[in-house]
Design a protein around this nucleic acid. Structure first.
Lengths: 247, 247
DNA sequence: CTACCAATCTGGCCCTACCAGATCAAGATT
DNA sequence: AATCTTGATCTGGTAGGGCCAGATTGGTAG
């Protein structure tokens, strides 16, 4: 669920983003030519072009035929998938962006879960129940259930019967994959998460919109705080290690 | 603002999506090999690989090394950018998806605009005021201001000081580009839109959250209805023409 | 029927080449 | 001196070939 692109391409994407950062390029600035980038990064032009195709599709760069490659926006101001990509690649989030992510998640999930209360079908309920079961088993066995966590949240969103809302929430969930993985290493947090999810299920089954709204706030905020604490502990421990982006 | 990818790549992306649709491929199914696709589409493998890199980054396909290309999800259930892409390429939205888009836009914009009321700075206000001025000039001169419309909405979202919300809303705006273009061909609708935007500005300046919430509902719903009417008129007129996806 | 193995297929990458428009600086014109 | 050509150069777009090593698969031997 995490690894999206082939190593070489994602590597080149990362290097390109690093280049932009390092050289403090601003909106509208021109990047080196494809040929230049290719031998700068030690890869072929084909690989550079694949990476640029991805960056283009994320609206970060814009290739003007026979002219050059231009920065459409700052990487920090691209699409949501760009953030997911950056998170995958280990680019750390600053504090403000982390707060923004939490706020955005609460906004979207609150409304999606509220709609789920109104519109959930029995099939949705069954699906959630099934996920909850595997969830419990994994929690008991000490397995990391980061992916299942995402799946559960998306399944709730799907119960809103709004496919676009699901797609909106997906990247908001994915951009915190690293923190989530670390989170589920703790038995205590696994249990807490399981309890939270059971509460979600009960509220949606009972169609209790007010309750589900409260739960979203509580769940996201406490989970974010827990991850924050884990990140700080990890940073303290290995100080010079790879930074973790996170929510 | 519309054309995101280079013609060949987007063409190949479109053809690939068409292939998936036509062959009714489901999640997990395998696509033809890159070499097969390349001569099927009459382009080089390089182009196919660029297109696949994009589809991969949108989580639509997944390339397993030395094994094959697999459908990660149905194109209709990919990322938001996939929808923007499909809209760009002229793939029509079904009625439900259109409703979903409207609902999602209202949810996200309502909250973003509400936060904008709380947090907007004088600089934000100045920016919006400037956009409104050019907006008025364009409206008077009969110019199509679809791009400026998007820019205004995103500027309001930016006033929420939440960069992630801006990114969330961006694709929701972009996926209705075609309808928006048609919308602004009408002088009456241009004027109505200008009035709406002035109302938005006033409400945000006055920090009137309740009002701005109402305005979002009204603006999105009426604009969607107007576009719907235009689409139906267009469909009736040229019946067998290229379908337009839309909100 | 099973276990094993080799031919084949596939994605990952690399390399070269050509095209035509964009760019830009040197040189010609006014 | 300012402006207008113009031609060399650079750039992205696309084609097409090639090699590698792991995955797949079908046939063969047991």
């Amino acid at each position: 669920m995490t690894q999206t692109l082939t190593s070489e391409t994602s590597d080149t994407v990362r290097k390109t983003l690093e280049y932009v950062r390092h050289h403090r390029l601003a909106k509208g600035d021109r990047l080196p030519s494809e040929r230049n980038l290719s031998d700068r990064f030690g890869v072929t032009r084909s690989s550079v072009r694949e990476a640029l195709a991805v960056l283009d599709s994320m609206r970060i760069t814009e290739r003007k035929a026979k002219s050059g490659i231009f920065l459409r926006t700052t990487p920090d101001d691209g699409g949501l998938d760009a953030l997911v990509l950056q998170a995958d690649l280990g680019v750390p989030f600053d504090a403000q962006l982390t707060r923004d992510a939490i706020e955005a998640r609460i906004i979207c999930e609150e409304q999606a879960f509220r709609l789920a209360c109104q519109r959930r079908t029995d099939a949705d309920l069954a699906k959630l129940s099934g996920l909850l079961d595997t969830y419990a088993v994994l929690a008991a066995n000490g397995r990391n259930m980061a992916d299942e966590d995402v799946e559960f949240h998306l399944a709730v969103a799907a119960a809103s019967q709004n496919r676009i809302l699901v797609r909106t929430i997906t990247p908001l969930m994915l951009m915190s994959t690293r923190g989530r993985r670390r989170y589920f290493a703790s038995a205590e947090l696994r249990q807490r998460s399981l309890d939270d999810h059971r509460a979600f299920f009960a509220a949606i089954e009972a169609r209790d919109e007010a309750l589900v709204t409260k739960l979203v706030h509580h769940h996201v905020h406490t989970a974010a705080a827990d991850i924050q604490a884990l990140n700080e502990a990890a940073a303290e421990a290995q100080d010079a290690g790879t930074p973790d982006p996170q929510t």
